[in-house]
């Protein structure tokens, strides 16, 4: 588990700050706060999750109240306010997916990893999450790996391959 991340400095790396600056530039000069969603993702990518110090650092960087950034970080469910495994797998179980095996795929992963939703494997490698519709229901079952990679048509064979690939 990335718990050691709590010990890292809340400060963001120069690379992350550069990425955030690029986001800030999309918005009017007096609307820096608009970049907070992207900035929190950039911070989460760097730290593995979002410790409160990091949220505060992002807020300060964007000139907003830390509480306002926390509201955002806790409202959108792809931000991780607690440490997660190296691979966070989010399985869509919403109805359209479920009709084509979404729930069964989740059960299959649970069984293979020996964890339930919102749990992390003992080796800290996998965290399993239940997801809502990802706008890809035609490809069911679908899963997200670490928020940014979408995997389609996840039948047993494909799940086996995915888990094997996650080192």
């Amino acid at each position: 588990m990335n718990t050691q991340n709590t010990m890292l400095s809340p400060e963001l790396s120069p690379e992350s700050l550069k990425k955030i600056d690029r986001e800030v530039a999309k918005y009017p000069a007096d609307q820096k706060q608009s970049a907070v969603m992207a900035a929190l993702v950039i911070a989460q990518d760097e730290k593995g999750w979002l410790p409160k110090e990091t949220i505060a650092a992002v807020a300060t960087y964007l000139g907003m109240a830390p509480m306002a950034a926390y509201e955002v970080a806790s409202f959108y469910n792809m931000y991780d306010l607690h440490p997660v495994g190296k691979y966070k797998i989010t399985v869509c179980t919403n109805l359209p997916c479920a009709l084509s095996g979404g729930v069964h795929a989740a059960d299959y992963v649970k069984h293979k990893l020996g964890v339930d939703f919102n749990e992390t494997t003992a080796d800290g490698k996998f965290t399993l999450k239940e997801g809502e519709c990802m706008g890809a229901c035609g490809d069911a079952p679908v899963m997200l790996v670490n928020n940014k990679r979408m995997c389609s048509f996840m039948l047993p064979e494909q799940i086996d391959a995915l888990l094997a690939e996650c080192k």
Partner: peptide, 27 residues
């Protein structure tokens, strides 16, 4: 024209929730 991404909230599909979200707030 710029792209702004969400991060997991269905309600941001509602147009004013979406606007709040672009403004860097809860949707």
């Amino acid at each position: 024209l710029f792209a702004h991404h969400g991060w997991g909230a269905y309600i941001c599909g509602e147009e004013t929730g979406l606007l709040e979200s672009i403004e860097g707030k809860k949707g």
